[in-house]
């Protein structure tokens, strides 16, 4: 069986979730083809080969000079050429492009797959309810279209690297594909969610912060810790206490820090979905029975407005 994977790239080559997807589909079969939209450097080809990719398909040209999901879908359909499985990472791009592909092929699409439960017919498990539950879903269509959830598997390289051939895919992009196309990109604010997503420590704050003025001690704690950023629950952004780019959860950033300090956060599914993969969770909460406390590795029971200043003071004292 052949598998086509839409691979997303940045300056560092194939992005991590795309490499995870390559590792994921390699488990179902060995013949993996990768489609890259845009430039394909020799380094990228070698990298894809290390993930077991046998052939790199490349779509390039004016129609791909700025992102248009429908044009990318035309490239995927052209590259798919009869393969029974088309996959991409469960990113905004991956989910969007493969939804177009599923429409064109007249088949179902399964988003955020984490496991293959059976192969005849193909049955997958996919994340629903923000990853808090799994749905078992058969994909009986002639072509199975799926996206792979982030961190569903390790981005491990193949035992035997392949030396993939590179082939240009000729894509006929109709004008209708370019009706919705990025006309320009505006740079983000330097301090927006990027630093939160890569932070070693996230100091999380929920309703317990109490008001828009309740974050001073929490922000000081992020200054006193190494590589720390503030993350907040949805209620905090809904109330307008902090900006949305600081939101962690199902509809905010997903973070996987070494340490998550959950201050005054009850641990609703919406928030848990965004930080449950943190290596260590320390909860500070007045309610010893809050889900966040019972699911955490460590907890302190009490009011964050008393405990966090005491932690800050102790950190300053020990730092001398």
């Amino acid at each position: 069986m052949s598998v086509l994977v839409l691979v997303e790239t940045d300056e560092g080559g194939a992005v991590e979730v795309s490499r995870e997807t390559l590792a994921f589909v390699r488990g179902t079969d060995a013949d993996v083809r990768a489609l890259v939209v845009g430039e394909v450097s020799p380094e990228l080809v070698e990298q894809l080969g290390s993930y077991g990719v046998r052939e790199v398909l490349r779509a390039d040209g004016e129609a791909f000079s700025s992102y248009a999901a429908a044009a990318w879908a035309s490239a995927v359909v052209a590259a798919a050429d009869g393969v029974p499985l088309v996959a991409a990472a469960g990113t905004p791009r991956g989910n969007e492009v493969l939804a177009h592909v599923a429409c064109r092929l007249g088949v179902a699409m399964a988003a955020n797959v984490v496991a293959v439960e059976g192969t005849d017919p193909l049955v997958v498990s996919r994340q629903v309810l923000g990853g808090s539950a799994l749905e078992e879903l058969p994909l009986p269509d002639a072509v199975a279209v799926l996206t792979v959830a982030g961190h569903a598997c390790e981005p491990s390289t193949a035992d035997e690297p392949a030396a993939p051939a590179v082939r240009e895919v000729s894509v006929d992009v109709p004008a209708a594909d370019l009706r919705a196309r990025v006309v320009r990109t505006e740079p983000g604010e330097p301090d927006e969610s990027g630093s939160l997503k890569s932070a070693r420590v996230v100091v999380g704050a929920g309703r317990g912060a109490g008001s828009a003025d309740g974050f001073k001690d929490l922000l000081e704690l992020t200054e006193l810790l190494d590589g720390a950023a503030l993350g907040v629950s949805r209620v905090v952004t809904s109330l307008g206490w902090r900006p949305h780019h600081e939101q962690v959860g199902q509809t905010g950033s997903r973070v996987t820090p070494d340490l998550y300090v959950a201050c005054g956060i009850s641990g609703a599914i919406q928030h848990w979905a965004g930080m449950s993969t943190s290596k260590t969770i320390l909860a500070i909460n007045t309610d010893a029975d809050a889900p966040m406390v019972t699911k955490a590795h460590y907890a302190v029971i009490g009011d964050l407005h008393e405990i966090v200043p005491a932690i800050n003071e102790e950190l300053r004292r020990r730092a001398g």
Partner: peptide, 24 residues
């Protein structure tokens, strides 16, 4: 869950943990 303590008196135990995790 390991409860490190209640209230501000737990600050010492929290900072011990932060140091053991190497995040100070």
């Amino acid at each position: 869950v390991t409860v490190l303590g209640e209230g501000p008196e737990a600050a010492g135990a929290v900072v011990d943990l932060l140091e053991s995790l190497g995040v100070t």
